[in-house]
């Protein structure tokens, strides 16, 4: 039905269309001059006048559409191929390049950090070994010194002990002599006090025998 109206519409643009009751076959009367015979409502009239049915199939406008479409496509193509696409391509390329470079730099830094860590570890191990050596050397030295000192001290002690023993011996000797003398004198005095005649030989022998027993 639409298409029926379409066909007639272009011809009837400037004229009024009159139709018989809507659901009957439309009887369109187009007067050549300007008079139109109308029966029934003019309900469909403005539909027929305004809607051309499928404007897509109105071939009269094809030339216009195709011409302007070609112009528009050419414009878009020029805009894109001359300006936009090279620019966007360059931006994306630059970004990609920069990212690659940054990643490479990061990788480089990582490698350097690893190297630095290895060097640090090596230095640390060396320092430890060095320290160990120094400790061992010092220990040996100290041990030697200590031994020397101990030996020295032992010798000193031995010398002192010998000296002390000698003096103790001397003291003991003198003490024994003194005791004998005192005993002899006391014995001679005692003998004389009791009216006897002190016989030095007898007294000496008696004292000696006694002292021998006491001192020993």
């Amino acid at each position: 039905m639409f298409s029926l109206l379409q066909q007639t519409a272009p011809a009837a643009v400037d004229q009024t269309i009159i139709m018989v009751p809507a659901d009957q076959t439309a009887e369109v009367v187009v007067a050549e001059t300007e008079t139109i015979v109308v029966t029934g409502t003019d309900a469909a009239a403005d539909a027929a006048a305004s809607a051309v049915g499928m404007p897509q199939l109105d071939f009269a406008t094809f030339g216009n559409q195709i011409f302007w479409l070609v112009v528009a496509l050419a414009a878009i193509y020029l805009i894109l191929s001359r300006v936009a696409l090279p620019r966007i391509g360059r931006i994306l390329g630059d970004r990609q390049g920069l990212m690659t470079a940054d990643l490479a730099a990061a990788e480089d830094f990582k490698r350097k950090a690893r190297e630095a860590e290895a060097a640090y570890d090596r230095a640390l191990a060396e320092a430890r070994a060095e320290a160990g050596k120094i400790v061992a050397a010092n220990k040996a030295e100290i041990d030697a010194e200590l031994k020397a000192a101990i030996a020295h001290a032992d010798a000193e002690i031995a010398a002192r002990t010998a000296e002390s023993e000698r003096r103790i011996g001397e003291i003991r000797e003198s003490a024994a002599t003194d005791a004998r003398n005192v005993a002899r004198e006391v014995a001679a005095e005692l003998v004389s006090t009791f009216g006897g005649k002190p016989d030095s030989g007898a007294i000496d022998a008696a004292v000696d025998s006694r002292i021998k027993g006491a001192v020993q």
Partner: peptide
């Protein structure tokens, strides 16, 4: 039919495609 006067409904779904 494209129009129905009685309900006041006016259908012109294709008018938007007219080349003017």
């Amino acid at each position: 039919m494209a129009t129905e006067e009685s309900t006041g409904l006016v259908f012109h779904p294709m008018d938007q495609f007219i080349v003017r």
